[in-house]
Design a protein around this nucleic acid. Sequence first.
DNA 1: CGCGGTCGCTCTACAGCGACCGCGGTGCCGTAGT
Length: 494
Amino acid sequence: MLNLNAVLKKHFGFDAFREGQKEIIEDLVNGRDVIAMLPTGGGKSLCYQLPGYILEGAVVIISPLLALMEDQVAQLKMNGEKRAVALNSFLSFDEKKSALYHLPEYRFIFLSPESLKHERVLNALNKIHISLFVVDEAHCISQWGHDFRPDYSLIGQARGKLNKAPCLAMTATATKEVLKDIHLSLHMTDPIRHVYSVNRPNISIMVSEARGLEDKLNQLSELVGRLEGPGLIYCGGRQWSEKAVSYLKEKGFKRIAFYHGGMENEQRMLIQQQFINGQLELVCCTNAFGMGVNKNNIRYVIHFHIPARMDAYMQEIGRAGRDGLPAIAITLYDPEDVQLPLFMIEKEFPARDELQAYLSSKEIDPSFKLEIEETHERFILHHAEKLKSENWEVKVDQIWKKIQERQQNKTEKLWNMIKWYSTETCRRSGILAHFGEKSDSPSFTRFCCDSCGMDIEAYYGQTKASSGYETAEGWKNELKMMFKVSEPIVQKTK
DNA sequence: CGCGGTCGCTCTACAGCGACCGCGGTGCCGTAGT
């Protein structure tokens, strides 16, 4: 029997596995497909890196962001592993050509789902022996694969064209529906699920009703003034993230910056690094900020606008309190705010006449290209490809049906979120129910949520008392007693 | 749909109002002879 602990010590220098890691690795080494839902910061990358040193061949990792791939490669190289490469658009043509030629020499190969569809890449991958096929941040399959980045939904198909290898899908947040989506989309064979609770007992959850912009801004500056940082503020739009920063700066707060997808890459990397290193106390951002932000001492996450779905909300608040110390998530909820996500769901897809105009113009003159939004075009082309034997009118009907289906699906998720904001029962139980977990095991306290009687004033007092890190251990112990975090709820199926 | 910015009106007034318009999230990706 293989001694995994010895391999762990030899290659990573650790004496013991973290929770779940060993079981996941054992299943993979035994050739099984695995879906792993591990809490953030649970040491997910080890789950594919270690098998890379046991199994014959290369580990292929599908990653959603260039920055994440680069990060992982840099980390591996820092650990002395030179046989790691990221095959992406950062490489020049010559570099890419060379990397593909030398592919058999690599042990860890990182790819985007988009590059996985190119013949050249597939051919090169087919010439090597793949020991393990990994999809990192696998919830993206469900979150993006249906519309925003359809290539995410083609990973399973690509996998079928490659040498058969066990498949590992990893994420921190997934509902039952998302887990099923991952399973089916990746064409996994009877996968073993290692699913841990999404509950984060050290994060208190609050929803504060706000009426109108002025009320919201007042509440915001009060919170920022009294809460211990570092903190994150999630806004619904790019301009909002910038405006929130100017407002708070005007109020005298310092070390704040904004972050959104419209900024230059270099600037984005700078802000992220400054925040991680503690030079920035507060970042106002859109949902672009998050994945790959490895910072364990975020003390609060404020939602200035509501997220559109529960799993997105959990991912966002889950960035707080990774050190296990008390943290708080507060949403400033104005019932009027539902209009923004509603509008976005509408706008995300082409309208019926746009769809019709696009497909009919292609029918009349294939060389003519009707200018429509890039995401709309990609959605149409992706689905038209599946219907390529049909005539254009059938395509219009079928794709329109698909659009309505997607919009309905997204709107439903939004209303579920709204329902959760409006209820007066325990918020944590509501979240756990949403993820299909029973909520009887966690011992809820007055620090649970506003519905459980949590008082923000008491919270201010507690965290102020424990400001600095001298008392960190004391708090950790108190929390363990309060929440029994030493006995995590593990729901392991199969 | 709501917000904010701009325009134009008033007509002693150049500040203040209403009408109107534009905007609103997430990110990959090309090229062939070593």
